[in-house]
Design a protein around this nucleic acid. Structure first.
Length: 243
DNA sequence: AGTCATGTTGACGA
DNA sequence: CTCGTCAACATGAC
């Protein structure tokens, strides 16, 4: 489910409840979820892979991790982590991480680090990248403080698109190319969003889970890369290694 | 049917 | 203190 674009979809689906009062709360979350009862949902935001339900004086942060899911105006048999009822419908979360953030949500997040946000700042991302020149680019792209919302699919597709080997060192990648990668992280993410909405995401993958390179036809390498040890799919013919 | 993965945090030991 | 490794969570696609 959950890379940045998928959270944007979740926000859009929750948006109709903005301005409405929570009439009932349920779920097995250990957080004080009853606090939302009787409160008006003031806003729904996202930051990277976080879904933020904003109330007066506090915000509930929902993270779907790897297996989390949600249903709008529907339920399923598995244990409910958090369910919010409104007069005109309900939102239900399953297997999600739920956490309360006290006070102003703006104090918790740097919106300019979120690739899906209007305030996304590629220059700031470049500055952060340059601070860690010895980090492999496959790890840097997954760094949520730099590219909030980028997940493993986006990582693999962006690196393939800009022809960079995932094990390249950030500081060895030519500046202009690094900048192009940073820009593509956002551009690709919005393409991801459209494809996901139209249920055609997977058919647009050119590297992720593929056995052969969709550009040149060579066999792709599948390997756990970097300190994060997340799987990378890459073409040693198309993607250059900078070390 | 077994394996594996679009993710993150915290514990523990070296 | 930092690093690496592991466990934990737990579903669904193949």
């Amino acid at each position: 489910m959950p890379e940045g674009p998928s959270l944007v979809i979740a926000r859009e689906l929750c948006a109709p409840f903005i301005g409405n009062t929570v009439t009932a709360v349920a779920g097995n979350s250990k957080e004080d979820i009853l606090r939302m009862a009787g409160e008006k949902l003031l806003d729904v935001k996202t930051w990277g892979k976080h879904l933020l339900l904003c109330f007066e004086g506090f915000t509930f942060r929902i993270h779907l991790l790897l297996f989390g899911s949600y249903l709008i105006n529907e339920q399923k048999a598995t244990a409910l982590r958090l369910g919010l009822k409104f007069r005109k419908g309900e939102i239900n979360f399953y297997n999600a991480s739920v956490k309360i953030l006290e006070g102003d949500v703006n104090d918790y997040y740097d919106w300019s680090a979120d690739i899906m946000n209007d305030e996304w700042d590629p220059v700031a991302a470049m500055v952060k990248l340059k601070k860690n020149p010895l980090v492999m680019i496959c790890d840097a792209l997954l760094e949520q403080d730099i590219f909030a919302g980028v997940g493993n699919i986006i990582k693999n597709e962006v690196l393939h698109r800009v022809s960079i080997h995932p094990e390249s060192l950030t500081g060895k990648i030519p500046e202009q190319l690094l900048q192009e990668m940073t820009e593509q992280a956002r551009i690709y993410s919005f393409e991801f969003l459209e494809w996901k909405k139209n249920y055609v995401l997977k058919q647009h993958w050119l590297a992720h889970t593929k056995k052969t390179c969709m550009r040149c036809g060579s066999s792709l390498i599948k390997k756990q890369t970097g300190k994060k040890k997340r799987r990378s799919f890459f073409c040693t013919n198309c993607q250059k290694l900078y070390v």
